[in-house]
Simulated scan of single mutants.
Amino acid sequence: DGLFNRFDATLRNAGYLPMSGQILDATLVAAPKQRNTNAEKADLREGRMPEDWQDKPSKLSHKDRHARWTLKFTRAKRQDDGTMPSSDLAIPFFGYKSHVSIDRKYRFIRKWKTTHAAASDGARLREGLLDKTNTASSVWADTAYRSKANEDFMEKQGFVSKVHRKKPHLKPMPRHIQKSNAGKSVIRSRVEHVFADQKSQT
Score class of each variant (00 low, 15 high):
Arg124Cys: 12
Asn38Ser: 13
Arg35Ala: 11
Tyr96Met: 01
Val194Asp: 07
His169Gln: 12
Glu51Gln: 14
Asn134Val: 13
Asp80Trp: 00
Val163Ile: 15
Ala118Gly: 06
Leu89Val: 11
Trp53Gln: 06
Leu24Thr: 14
Thr83Asn: 08
Tyr145Asn: 00
Lys162Trp: 07
Leu129Cys: 09
Tyr145Gly: 02
Trp112Glu: 08
Ser137Tyr: 03
Ala182Ile: 01
Ala149Thr: 10
Leu60Thr: 06
Gln157Ile: 00
Ala31Trp: 05
Arg45Tyr: 13
Gly47Val: 08
Phe94Val: 06
Leu11Thr: 00
Gly15Val: 10
Ser87Gln: 10
Phe108Asp: 04
Thr10Leu: 14
Asp197Gln: 07
Asn5Ile: 10
Ser58Thr: 12
Asp25Tyr: 03
Thr27Pro: 08
Thr143Cys: 11
Ala9Met: 01
Phe7Glu: 13
Gly47Trp: 04
Ser137Val: 00
Ser180Thr: 15
Ala76Ile: 06
Arg110Asn: 15
Asp197Phe: 05
Pro57Cys: 03
Arg12Lys: 14
Arg6Gly: 09
Asn13His: 09
Glu151Arg: 08
Pro32Asp: 02
Arg68Val: 08
Thr83Leu: 02
Leu24Gly: 12
Thr37Cys: 11
Lys105Arg: 13
Trp53Lys: 12
Glu155Val: 15
Asp80Cys: 00
Ala119Lys: 03
Leu24Glu: 14
Pro57Met: 05
Lys56Thr: 09
Arg45Ser: 05
Gly122Ser: 05
Pro168Met: 01
Ile23Glu: 02
Arg175Gly: 04
Asp1Ala: 09
Lys132Tyr: 06
Ala67Thr: 03
Ala67Val: 06
Asp103Ile: 08
Gln22Lys: 07
Ser189Ile: 01
Asp152Gln: 14
Pro18Tyr: 03
Arg45Leu: 07
Pro92His: 10
Leu170Phe: 11
Ser101Lys: 01
Leu71Ala: 07
Tyr16Val: 07
Arg124Val: 02
Gly21Trp: 02
Ser20Tyr: 10
Lys72Ser: 11
Lys166Gln: 07
Lys97Gly: 02
Lys105Gln: 13
His176Phe: 10
Ser101Asn: 15
Ser98Tyr: 04
Ser189Val: 01
Ser86Trp: 02
Arg45Asn: 12
Thr135Ile: 01
Ile177Trp: 08
Trp112Pro: 00
Arg188Ile: 01
Pro172Thr: 10
Thr202Gly: 12
Phe93Pro: 02
His169Ser: 11
Ala118Glu: 03
Arg126Ile: 01
Asp55Asn: 13
Arg124Trp: 03
Asn13Lys: 10
Lys105His: 13
Asp8Phe: 15
Lys77Arg: 03
Leu125Trp: 05
Lys167Met: 11
Pro168Glu: 09
Lys72Phe: 08
Ala67Gly: 05
Leu89Ser: 06
Gly2Arg: 11
Thr83Ile: 01
Thr202Ala: 08
Pro50Leu: 12
Ala30Phe: 05
Lys179His: 10
Trp112Asn: 09
Thr37Gly: 09
Val160Asn: 10
Asp197Arg: 07
Lys162Thr: 07
Gln22Met: 14
Asp88Glu: 03
Thr74Ile: 05
Phe94Asn: 04
Val160Asp: 13
Ser120Phe: 03
Ile91Glu: 12
Ser101Val: 10
Leu129Phe: 09
Met154Cys: 12
Phe93Leu: 05
Ala30Gln: 11
Lys171Asn: 07
Arg124Leu: 11
Thr202Met: 06
Ala26Asn: 08
Ser98Glu: 09
Asp88Ile: 04
Arg35Ser: 15
Ala31His: 02
His176Tyr: 13
Arg45Thr: 05
Pro32Trp: 08
Ala118Tyr: 02
Arg110Ile: 10
Lys171Asp: 04
Asp55Gly: 10
Gly95Pro: 06
